[in-house]
Every structure is written in C-alpha cells, then in structure tokens.
Amino acid sequence: MEDPTESLKQRRSFFVMGSTQLEISDEDTMDLTAYRNNEQEKTRIADLMRMVPETVKSVIDIGARDGFLSKELTNYCPSVTALDLEMPVIDHPNVRCLKGDATALQFPDASFDLVFCSEVLEHIPSPALEQACSELGRIADQYVLIGVPYMQDIRHGRTTCYSCGKTNPPWAHVNSFDETRLKLLFPDFEVVRINFVGKGEPGTNNLSAYLLNLAGNPFGTYIQEEPCVHCGMRLKPPPSRNLTQKVLTRVAYTVRRAQIPFTPARGNWIHVLFRKRGVNPEKEKHAPATCGLSAKLGLHPSRSDA
C-alpha cells in the first residue's frame, strides 16, 4: 500500500478491507452493495458455497446481517434459518429470520445439518469466542462451516476512537485465526476441507504500529459500521494532523514498505468445513475446489485434513 499522506490533503482516505482497497471521502460510509460486487468478495462467497455439502437439508446462518448469504444458501439447502443479534429482515420464502446470540443459542442439540458462520468469529472476544464456538458445535448435527480472515495482522489499519481516545483493531476484528486455532475451537469435529481465498494484505510491525498510534491512526477503517470496541460509540473521522503527526505517519509507512518484500504471500480468508466426529461421510459431496487467487499465490486452494 502506497503512503497515502498526500491523499489526506484532499480530505480523502484509503481503507483496506481484507485485500480490497476502497477509496472514500469524509462523507462516505461503508456501501455493502459495492462491496458485494467486488470481484474478491464474489470469489469468497462462491468458495463458501462450493463447500456446502450436498446432503444437508437444514442450515443456520449465524450472523446473517443483511441476509445476502442466507439467500445464497437457499440455492444449496431447502431450509435456511438466518440469525443475528438484531432481527434480520430478509424477504425470501425459504429463509426463517430469528434474533439471537451466538453465545447462547436457543435451539436443542443437533438442530441443523449445517451451521454456517462467516465473518463473525473475528468480532467476538474471549471468553465469549470459546462459548460461541461451543454453541455452534452443539446445535450442529453434522457440519460446521467457518469463514474468517486468515492470519490477519490486526495492528494494521487500526483506528483511534475520538470519543474515548482508545485504539481499535480494524473492522473491530479482535481475533486473528490460523488452521491450528480454528481446530482447537472445535475439538469435537474433524476437518473435511480447508480452502484459502484471495491475497492477504501484508501486515505491519511494532514500530510502524506504534508510530501510527502516536499520529492518531489517520488511515484506519473509519468507514466501518462496527462501533468502538471499548466505549461502544460510532467511530468518527480523524481530525487534521499536525506536522509532527504527518512526519510520524510518513516514517511509519516507510518502515512498513521496507518489510513488505520479505513478507510471505498468504490467503486473505480461510474457509474450514468441519464434520462432527462419528458422522458417516460416505454420501458427502462437494463442488470441485476453486483455484483462483490462492493458486496464483502458490498456496493450496483446497486440502483435506480428515
């Protein structure tokens, strides 16, 4: 990512959502429609749908948000339940909308053939994270399908809350995940398949992160809908920087650029299909693996650890 210092002079900022760079003005907010139409987001969603086993008849979408993925899931499963902290509003005859908390799901054990959870776990701090994963596993009769950013460096893209003064991780992502951590969160399940999608944004380093904190984190993800993880207030755009903050910003980006050539390539997202131990896999079917951007990076787009 190039040093965006000059862009701020025109009161425009650059933000990175995964590996997708979006340019916004101070008046802009996150446009989900534009984001859904981004090619990398289309690739991510297509890969998740390919991983849905053909045998499932019922699925619950945890963290349904605007219902986009819930409606996509109706193409692969006849019965979809969409759940979020606020009641989802989804106009589709095969989608049932419910309000609920992933850490305390009001369903009996083994209620759904598939529990689908994408872009949610990175927002849940411990120990609630472990409780949520336990609940997902409890209500799953056969499978759990998880999608999260892969090895995200949550020091990069941080914001400063100008209500409480504290530092926030980008997009309120309080967790970073790799294969090992995900497996540990679902001890009663075995891995059927792991896919890596997209090209991950290079991380940062402690010095650059420290300098940007001193500069007020001027290029963080201020367009996010998620509030401050500390005080709950909506994030406000950063004020104009003084000369010292501008110098700190430039030094921070110079140091970060110097490390990027030595940063290994990695996928932007990791998708893991888990199967409950003891479930008969004989009738299990999936669409062929996608090669896409992960293959171009030299990564393995799909593998089975079962």
Rank of each mutant, 00 (worst) to 15 (best):
S7N: 05
L8I: 09
L8V: 02
L8C: 03
L8F: 12
L8S: 03
K9G: 02
K9S: 09
K9I: 03
Q10A: 14
Q10K: 14
R11H: 07
R12C: 08
R12Q: 10
R12M: 12
R12N: 04
S13M: 01
S13F: 05
F14W: 07
F14H: 05
F14L: 05
F15I: 06
F15K: 00
F15G: 02
F15T: 06
V16K: 03
V16D: 01
M17S: 03
G18C: 02
G18Q: 00
S19F: 00
S19P: 05
T20N: 15
T20Q: 10
T20H: 02
T20G: 01
Q21A: 09
Q21K: 06
Q21I: 03
Q21S: 08
Q21H: 05
L22P: 00
L22M: 01
E23H: 02
E23G: 01
E23T: 05
E23M: 10
I24S: 13
I24D: 00
S25D: 11
D26P: 02
D26E: 11
D26S: 14
E27M: 10
E27Y: 13
E27W: 10
E27A: 07
D28Y: 04
T29A: 10
M30S: 04
M30H: 15
M30I: 11
L32F: 12
L32C: 06
L32A: 10
T33Q: 08
T33A: 13
T33M: 01
T33F: 07
A34Y: 04
A34L: 08
A34D: 09
A34S: 12
Y35R: 12
Y35A: 08
Y35N: 04
Y35K: 05
Y35V: 11
R36W: 07
R36I: 01
N37M: 04
N37L: 02
N37V: 02
N38C: 12
N38E: 11
N38P: 00
N38T: 06
E39L: 13
E39Y: 06
E39V: 14
Q40A: 11
E41Q: 03
E41S: 13
K42H: 07
K42V: 14
K42I: 10
K42A: 02
T43I: 10
T43D: 15
T43V: 15
R44N: 13
R44A: 12
I45G: 08
A46H: 08
A46F: 03
A46S: 15
D47F: 01
D47M: 06
D47H: 09
M49P: 01
M49Y: 09
R50W: 08
R50F: 05
R50I: 09
M51N: 04
M51V: 11
M51H: 08
V52R: 00
V52C: 05
V52M: 01
P53R: 13
P53F: 13
P53L: 05
E54Y: 07
E54I: 03
T55G: 10
V56N: 06
V56P: 00
V56F: 10
V56S: 05
K57N: 14
K57Q: 15
S58A: 09
S58C: 11
S58I: 04
